[in-house]
Nucleic acid binder design. Structure first.
Lengths: 125, 125
DNA sequence: TTGACATTACGAAGCTCTTCGTATATCTTT
DNA sequence: AAAGATATACGAAGAGCTTCGTAATGTCAA
């Protein structure tokens, strides 16, 4: 299993890459700037570092490099959740689930979806 | 609402304080050393910083200071979960819940508990 | 081809977190 | 009281992350 553990800023960029597909630094930076001010070279540097770490790869054929997510969305989120569960909930995912549910307003639809997932889990054991 | 956001190391210490109640640096350090090597002064410094931040307070009456958790367990975990949901799941707690459940093996008992919580949530809306 | 502009490369500063060495103070034991 | 053990205070180093300024390079239009 891959073991990607992006930082918060890196994760922000990965989200954009996951949604948009391969993207230029310019595009990523524009997206980021819809939420907060980030300098262009800041974003560039971050993506160069992510490239070194192997979180993304890039196509340097053209002048404008195109970055592609290497870290897979599901794998990455699993890693993040596992880490978070270990640090904040002593390894108990169920405690996290309970805390998250008790903490938030959930719509009836969401609760139905959740019950469906639980049924699935019950039947596959 | 309080807005405590402890770091990983600070959280480790808070867990011990929550479980054991008011404790000395020596005790905390001993507990930490059951899991990994930490120097005594490292733990001391960390707790002094936590004191400055207001995460803990301390009783300095005796030579050996006694530290007490100020950050409440439930509040702190809620803050952590909210933060994590925002960063990793675009603010959707339900996505986190689904990911955590799909990611882990859950016992039948845990699933029963979870269903009970869901029923409670459904009835209170 | 030359000037204007966009892009990349590089280095460094500032911040936070963690870690620990050393100095100082306090208690205990003999 | 002196020696030894235990505790606190303080400062600083090192690592990782984020940020940005500046320089170098590539591209395109006039």
């Amino acid at each position: 299993m891959s073991n990607f553990k992006p930082t918060d800023s890196e994760l922000e960029i990965l989200h954009i890459l996951w949604e948009n597909g391969p993207s230029s630094v310019r595009y990523i930076n524009d997206m980021l700037n819809e939420r907060r001010d980030v300098g262009y070279t800041t974003t560039l540097k971050l993506m160069q570092i992510m490239n070194e770490k192997g979180l993304v790869k890039r196509d340097t054929a053209a002048k404008t490099h195109i970055y592609i997510a290497v870290a897979k969305e599901n794998d990455t989120k699993n890693n993040l959740v596992n880490d978070f569960v270990n640090v904040a909930f002593h390894g108990s995912a169920m405690n996290l689930v309970m805390q998250a549910l008790g903490n938030t307003k959930s719509s009836p639809e969401e609760l139905e979806d959740l019950k469906a997932l639980i049924s699935k889990l019950e039947n596959q054991s």
